[in-house]
């Protein structure tokens, strides 16, 4: 069984089960089928720069190289910021309880690109937390699945259908622009309102 994400809320530790909800779970998905002239299924491969070697799925590795082109172990390398200072690694969010204390506004939440959403469940009592979420409270916390350089932004919120979700996203660099900050450079019958929000048609 997967290790739960433990959130610390109001002095109580709440272990959460996370179930990822993807677009394909809601609307289905599209597969691209490629056939040759005889109607046989084809697959994608990589043709190497020698013009002869065909490399199938899993046949290529990414490697880390020194300036001279010698192989290096990535773990022996040092992550730095733009000032050249070492960046400390953050631990996995599953290593210790994550305090749930920061509340953000709708605008702050909307300033993030949301990459993944997880429906949450728990065998513990979620009553107090759900009462806060029902008021429209959005909690933010640093979230890192494996641990690494920079945590993502994790949000806990209640969806409009009443389901509690954890959303994982990245902040964006939105900024207010003024007049001087220039950037350089047919009607038909209206459809049904439902069509406008039909996510299944896309």
């Amino acid at each position: 069984m997967a290790k739960p994400l433990v959130l610390s809320f109001g002095g109580v530790e709440i272990p959460l089960g996370l179930e990822k909800v993807e677009r394909s779970d809601l609307y289905g998905f599209v597969e691209i089928e490629t056939l040759d002239e005889q109607g046989r299924k084809c697959s994608l491969a990589t043709l190497a720069d020698d013009g002869r070697s065909l490399i199938g799925s899993g046949g290529i590795s990414l490697v880390t190289l020194s300036p001279e082109g010698n192989w290096l172990q990535k773990k022996a390398c040092i992550p730095t910021d733009n000032q050249g200072k070492k960046v400390e690694m953050v631990p996995s969010s599953y290593a210790a309880p994550v305090p749930l204390s920061e509340v953000v506004s709708i605008e702050e939440y909307l300033s993030h690109d949301i990459r993944a959403v997880y429906q949450i469940s728990s065998e513990a009592d979620l009553g107090g937390l759900m009462a806060e979420l029902k008021k429209g409270t959005i909690y933010r916390f640093p979230y890192s699945f494996r641990g690494g350089l920079e945590p993502d932004a994790g949000f806990l919120l209640l969806a409009s259908d009443g389901t509690a979700f954890m959303a994982v996203g990245s902040p964006t660099k939105l900024e207010f622009v003024g007049f001087e900050q220039s950037a350089g450079i047919a009607d038909e019958e209206s459809g049904e309102e439902e069509d406008l929000l039909d996510f299944g048609m896309m």
Binding site: S53, L54, I55, G56, G58, G59, I60, S61, L62, V63
Partner: peptide, 8 residues
Amino acid sequence: GRVMKAHQ
């Protein structure tokens, strides 16, 4: 960089 691990 990318290296070849195997080919068909």
